[in-house]
Design a protein around this nucleic acid. Structure first.
Length: 579
DNA sequence: GCCGTTTTCGGCCCGACTGTTTTCAGTCG
């Protein structure tokens, strides 16, 4: 975490520079803004600490990074060596505004943010909220009543995110801490518990459990981690800290004999745990974080093993992701729990991008990364022409691109198989953004909505069903279009989507991007009553994004899906992507 | 400010949508 913290901070500064420059962009500044955005993205995607790149290779090595040239590399060096960047500070003096939070509000970009600052002195979300409450915004030039309402909604979305993080941010941070605790050698076991272990899509705080008899020493190591900002409370069994990333993290240290019981106790959501404890009572036991006891309070068994506890209560073991009290307990009592899909069951990925549209890497680099991720095949599915911003490709572009894919497949000699496809836009009227002939030539067509989000449920569903009924589509991409903490999905009728998927043999995507996770767990549970398959896709826009697949798998597990429901758990010859 | 099978200057993904306007600015993707 800490090594990439620097990259993250640098990337944010470059993005802020882009924000501030964009306020009075004219002439070539327009392109300067774009250059800073690209540089910011490039730094954020970098696997290596920028400081290390510079140390090992000097300015020349920095300029090797795509989007970093003479100017920005000078600024980076200045920041590495002096901890400051003059260009940033100069602009910041002119605009002392919290762009970071304000521009996260849907419908507010840098220009309107600056306009609110100049006209009303709004510097942050609190100031915006105050101006909003006094209805001071609707009178401003360029704003009206509807803008005011939209901003109000945006603030509410942002506030609902306060103190919460995406699973995709919280899990790596938690793993970093777990690794450090394990490396200390003081604990027999260290595991993540709580909502992260359940792979919930957003996380309030990080829960970690350690089995050790050397509690004080473990707590010492934990409180002194670099990622810890301050210690909130410190005891021998529980310590709470505030992390530099803004999240709280609890560490509980348990006697090794009780570890299984504790893990069970600190994993399920409240309702799951209450139900399991009721079952224990019914069977004459008492269950707590230390073990399973008989009614007299006599020690039945401290437990090193969660599974033992469930079995002792006459239940199947329940995977962490299912512990939400959504019917899993009844099922476990009837011994009806089926093992949900695991990351290792995935053999391929049906949705990825390259720099030929809006990805960061070449198809060759993506292929190598897919191999490293243990995949046997993946579909390359670049955007189609109407998505200009994403450099969408036309029919001819795809034809030429596929020649290169063919050549790559030849060279790969079976190490991996690249499937030729596209993520085709579902246009406003439900038609697809490439010719029938072009789409028919592809092995995998993912169809997604990227525009005109504000249709009502009936029209949006009509639009999507029409696309599915075209006979050209294999997978419906990110079916609701939601972006966690940013916008709700467009409304769709899941029953009609499910019926169409069944009728047309279209698989429903579970998009693994941390801010999408779309379909989400509850919608998966709902729609899985139809005889349909799902595709767990990375939607990778860079080689790093294959690692997001675990979030899609976690979501599928939360939706109780077994591997036989997942399209890309099949070996390639059994994919049956026929039309 | 970056970049180069258009190569050291002169390009740089731009159209749709919304809400504000009455011809367009800002935002999004």
């Amino acid at each position: 975490m800490e090594q990439l913290d620097f990259n993250r901070k640098l990337s944010e500064m470059l993005d802020r520079i882009a924000d501030m420059l964009s306020v009075d962009e004219r002439g070539t500044v327009r392109f300067e803004v774009r250059a800073y955005r690209k540089a910011a993205l490039s730094i954020a995607e970098l696997d290596e600490d920028v400081r290390r790149v510079y140390r090992d290779g000097g300015q020349g090595a920095l300029m090797e990074i795509p989007g970093i040239g003479a100017g920005i590399s000078r600024s980076i060096i200045e920041y590495i060596e002096r901890g400051r960047m003059r260009k940033y500070e100069m602009l910041k003096r002119r605009y002392p505004i919290d762009f970071e939070s304000l521009t996260r509000i849907e419908g507010l970009g840098p220009k309107r943010v600056v306009s609110l600052y100049r006209l009303l002195g709004v510097k942050d979300v609190a100031g915006l909220r105050a101006a909003l409450d006094k209805h001071r915004i609707r009178g401003l030039k360029g704003f009206g009543e509807r803008s005011e309402e939209a901003i109000g909604r945006g603030i509410s979305m942002l506030e609902s995110a306060r103190g919460r993080a995406l699973l995709g941010d919280a899990l790596p941070d938690a793993e970093f801490i777990v690794d450090k605790l394990r490396a200390s050698g003081l604990a027999e076991r260290v595991e993540i518990a709580g909502s992260i272990r359940r792979m919930q899509e957003t996380i309030g705080d990080i829960d970690i459990l350690a089995a050790s008899s050397r509690q004080e020493e473990v707590m010492d190591v934990f409180s002194k981690l670099d990622s810890v900002e301050s210690v909130i409370l410190r005891g021998s069994t529980k310590t709470s800290v505030r992390l530099r990333n803004g999240m709280n993290c609890d560490l509980r240290v348990i006697e090794p004999d009780s570890f299984g019981a504790a893990l069970q106790y600190f994993t399920g959501n409240k309702y799951h745990n209450v139900s399991v404890r009721k079952i224990a009572i019914k069977r004459g036991y008492k269950l707590n974080e230390y073990g399973l006891f008989n009614r007299s309070g006599k020690d039945m068994a401290r437990s090193r093993d969660e599974r033992w506890i469930y079995n002792r209560l006459g239940m199947d073991y329940i995977p962490p992701e299912m512990r939400e009290d959504r019917g899993e307990i009844g099922l476990a009592l009837k011994h009806g729990i089926s093992d949900p899909v695991e990351l290792g069951d995935l053999r391929g990925d049906m949705h990825t991008h390259t720099r030929d549209s809006d990805g960061m890497n070449s198809i060759e680099e993506m292929a190598e990364a897919a191999i490293r991720s243990g995949l046997e095949y993946f579909a390359t599915t670049n955007h189609t022409k109407s998505l200009r911003i994403a450099n969408g490709m036309n029919e001819r572009g795809f034809a030429e691109y596929f020649k290169r894919v063919d050549a790559l497949n030849d060279r790969m000699n079976g190490r991996i198989r690249v499937i030729k496809g596209a993520e085709v836009d579902i246009l406003k009227d439900g038609s697809l953004d490439l010719s029938r002939k072009s789409l028919e030539s592809m092995e995998c067509v993912v169809a997604s909505v990227h525009s005109s989000f504000n249709m009502d449920e009936r029209r949006m569903t009509d639009r999507i069903v029409k696309a599915m009924d075209s006979g050209l589509v294999h997978i419906l991409g990110h079916p609701t279009g939601r972006l966690i903490f940013k916008r709700d999905g467009y409304p769709i009728d899941l029953d009609r989507i499910g019926e169409a998927a069944e009728r047309d043999g279209v698989a429903i995507e579970i998009n693994s991007f941390p801010d999408r996770l779309d379909l989400c767990d509850t919608n998966i549970m709902y729609i899985s009553k139809y005889k349909i398959r799902f595709a767990i896709d990375s939607d990778a826009h860079s080689v790093k994004h294959f690692s997001n697949l675990r979030y899609g798998v976690g979501t599928a597990r939360r939706g109780w899906l077994t591997k036989d429901r997942i399209l890309n758990c099949n070996e390639i010859k059994r994919l049956r992507l026929g039309r």
